[in-house]
């Protein structure tokens, strides 16, 4: 084993390792990149069914409906808006503790055939004052909020900012009593 052949062999091993890493990464990038979209973008783009999307926006106050499937699995339906379009999100599972109507939310899932959003994961891991960066950017782009002019518009006004009809609700809305956990009336 000479110095030269050892070097050749080492370079070969590194090339093989990094080459396979690159190949794997490129192949995975093709299908596993998750785009962040606001409701209006999502409805305009209509990505293929099954393509995973991160949907972000504000939960329309009073839009939360909870029911459960025959086997007892709870199903939450709520509308998410960016102030231009609203989309219904269907989520089977427990909503996070910080989920509030009238506040920002990020849902991971895909667009179903009926143009509603099937979420596999709902994230609302932030406090009342904090808004996920992606959601804030989307709101800014849609012209509904400019952070230079103060905090985001109050939760109640989100109802009027969207064209979607507000579903009737028989429960007090969490946004009216800020901080009350959603779903506990």
């Amino acid at each position: 084993m000479t110095r030269k052949s050892r070097r050749l062999w080492l370079v070969g091993a590194c090339a093989l390792g990094l080459g396979s890493a690159t190949t794997l990464a490129l192949a995975a990038f093709r299908q596993d990149i998750v785009f962040f979209m606001a409701p209006s973008q999502l409805l305009a783009a209509e990505p293929a069914a099954g393509r995973t999307i991160r949907l972000g926006g504000m939960v329309v106050a009073g839009s939360l409906h909870e029911e459960h499937a025959p086997d007892g699995t709870p199903i939450a339906r709520f509308a998410v808006t960016d102030g231009q379009k609203a989309i219904t999100v269907r989520y089977a599972g427990i909503l996070p503790d910080l989920f509030r109507e009238g506040q920002s939310v990020v849902a991971l899932g895909s667009l179903a055939a009926d143009r509603s959003f099937r979420a596999s994961e709902v994230l609302a891991k932030h406090d009342e004052t904090y808004m996920p960066k992606d959601v804030a950017d989307a709101l800014r782009r849609s012209g509904k909020w400019d952070p230079r002019f103060g905090p985001p518009p109050s939760a109640a006004s989100w109802n009027n900012m969207t064209a979607a009809a507000r579903p009737a609700t028989d429960r007090p809305v969490a946004a009216d009593a800020p901080g009350a956990p959603a779903g506990r009336s």
Binding site: A21, L24, A25, A28, D32, I33, F35, F36, D134
Partner: peptide, 13 residues
């Protein structure tokens, strides 16, 4: 572009 790379990417690579 706002994108994210989730668990499937890391599991596959």
């Amino acid at each position: 572009q706002a994108i994210s790379v989730g668990a499937p990417f890391f599991n596959e690579t």
